[in-house]
């Protein structure tokens, strides 16, 4: 009984992670691409700097961010992890806390860590698409009296529909593949708030030798991937067709 409840509790957690991750990555990636899609002396350096974290392994991201988020590093002294140290430095003591120990916050913190790690990839796909938008579209929008934000939403956002589709698909697949970083950062905790299905699969099939259960949950993940990617792809393709008309 306990075991079945444990299995079913992982599914909403996994879907919640996938949802948050997809939203955060798309918003951050699009805005970042928008900002990088300008001619400036720094843009090429900045592109490299957003790409660099992607070279770092999930488990290393986990180790480093455990230190960054931790409230105390060493029990005997009054010291703290990097993030809290920065908050104290800027006089925002009230915000300092145990970032991975607060059940209401942990999932968002984990997702944001993932955004730090790989937002460059999402932004790169948007950027590649933005660079092939014909200039004439912006010019005619300007003649019609559109301001910057109006141009961004009516021209840029619509013209990057293909990149949006690619990003949605990749992000959904990658969200359901995520394991290393979450397993190291939270081990599924506090409680089961970040216990995504992959952590449960590895627990069952490796630690407690319930291989059949692990396989069955693996199949469930595959079904989710197909269902999610299938439905979003049909929706996105329809959307792309509508914007093209």
């Amino acid at each position: 009984m306990f075991r079945t409840r444990d299995i079913f509790s992982t599914i909403p957690v996994t879907l919640y992670y996938a949802l948050l991750n997809t939203i955060f990555m798309n918003v951050a990636g699009f805005l970042l691409a928008l900002a990088l899609n300008r001619k400036s002396r720094f843009t090429s350096t900045m592109r490299v700097s957003f790409f660099l974290p992607m070279l770092i392994a999930g488990i290393i991201v986990g180790f480093v961010f455990i230190e960054i988020y931790s409230p105390v590093l060493d029990a005997q002294e009054g010291n703290m992890g990097t993030l809290n140290a920065f908050l104290y430095l800027f006089g925002m003591d009230g915000l300092a806390q145990n970032w991975l120990g607060n059940p209401a916050l942990t999932m968002v913190v984990v997702v944001l860590t993932g955004v730090w790690n790989s937002v460059g990839y999402t932004a790169l796909i948007y950027l590649a698409n933005m660079q092939i938008i014909p200039k004439e579209l912006y010019e005619s929008a300007e003649i019609d009296g559109a301001g910057y934000w109006r141009k961004t939403f009516t021209v840029t956002w619509r013209m990057v529909a293909p990149a949006f589709s690619i990003n949605m698909t990749l992000l959904l697949i990658n969200s359901l593949k995520q394991y290393d970083m979450i397993a190291i950062l939270t081990q599924g905790g506090p409680g089961t708030t970040t216990r995504v299905i992959n952590i449960a699969i590895l627990d069952y099939s490796v630690s407690s030798y319930k291989v059949g259960l692990g396989c069955a949950m693996g199949v469930v993940v595959t079904l989710f991937v197909f269902a999610l990617v299938g439905t979003t792809n049909t929706m996105l393709r329809r959307r792309e067709r509508e914007t093209n008309d």
Binding site: I201, S205, G218
Partner: peptide
């Protein structure tokens, strides 16, 4: 195979 999640294949692979 691009769509297939790594963790579906994990147990059979190890076996």
């Amino acid at each position: 195979g691009i769509v297939l999640p790594t963790f579906t294949m994990l147990v059979p692979q190890i076996k």
